[in-house]
Design a protein around this nucleic acid. Structure first.
Lengths: 175, 175
DNA sequence: TTTATTTACTGGTATATACCACAAAATATG
DNA sequence: CATATTTTGTGGTATATACCAGTAAATAAA
């Protein structure tokens, strides 16, 4: 057996200070308690895993389900608008759509008035699949609400929507 | 000019209901207001971009900076422990480390007592680089605190740490 | 109307991240 | 001790995502 040092969260060492920390448990101090970016990414990994497991062996990843749900919700958005809504780089969106297009879940249709523009649309199969997975998604979301608190859950989403907004980006950048 | 429908957030349509929404602005209703997973991912994309721009042309991505900061903070964690701390899949961590190892920022050292185990360590160059970027990180983090509120910022990180915890995963899964 | 600029998308390249199957070492079991 | 099981990593494959450098269409400017 190795000699373990014990948790001591009383004096929080500054970022990047070496502590020779061999602790196994999760409660230890970490960068995510100091860096909002790290904190959000870390949580997104956890939720990706959690929601993903609920989605299970369905053909779609939780990210794909999100994207398709947003497409359905938007009607028939242009790539540009969809990218903005998802806070995603336009080219990243293009790449992300490829597997969905390949699998016949989504199709791109040229806009009639502006030949530069392409609109994103769920195929019939895509719509059906999205509807089908709604049940699983609801299970995941209700588990989340249960574990985190329905109230706090809604508040959190609102806070995150604020952070994701263009106005926030503006404020962050200009200051 | 196209005919635009106008924003109406008064009646929030359920997920996956088609609305034929051509709105350009960000305030529109979206999946992220209903799905915590989507909300967190979306925010993580935004923050990735924002922090990333502050990091600018430095050799490290903001994700790499986070990871290196956690390594520094942990002392000399095993791959397993680091993966757990980061809430990252072990193999994903391995892959993520490759560019850092290639660039001489990080090295893997075999554990002396358990030949299965490898420990992660910042090289001298890595430590220096991490220290150097601390300034940029501090700028980004203080911009965030400014824009979101220092209080709320700390609360948010705590909430996200809870969501990222093993206990939360437990609660989510068992329920 | 010709030219310059902006807009919307595509493709390349690199990192981020997950899951699965496999290998090797350590540990538990009979 | 010999075998079964668990633990820790590695490599493959696929999606997620960013940034940059084009390209073509639309629009603004001269």
């Amino acid at each position: 057996m190795r000699e373990w040092s014990f948790k001591r969260n009383d004096h929080i060492p500054p970022i990047g200070r070496k502590v020779r920390n061999n602790m196994t448990n999760q409660q230890e101090d970490g960068i995510w308690l100091h860096c909002s970016n790290s904190a959000v990414r870390r949580a997104s990994r956890r939720l990706g895993q959690l929601y993903g497991h609920v989605m299970g062996d369905s053909d779609l990843k939780s990210t794909q389900f999100s994207l398709m749900s947003q497409i359905a919700r938007s009607g028939e958005p242009t790539l540009k608008n969809l990218a903005e809504a998802m806070v995603m780089d336009l080219s990243a969106l293009g790449h992300t759509l490829k597997p969905l297009i390949r699998d016949g879940m989504v199709e791109l249709v040229p806009d009639e008035r502006d030949r530069r523009v392409k609109r994103v649309r769920l195929t019939e199969a895509g719509t059906a699949k999205q509807q089908e997975l709604l049940t699983l998604w609801r299970d995941a979301q209700s588990r989340f609400d249960q574990a985190f608190g329905k109230e706090k859950s809604a508040e959190l989403r609102k806070a995150l929507a604020l952070i994701s907004s263009a106005e926030f980006a503006e404020a962050f950048t200009k200051s």
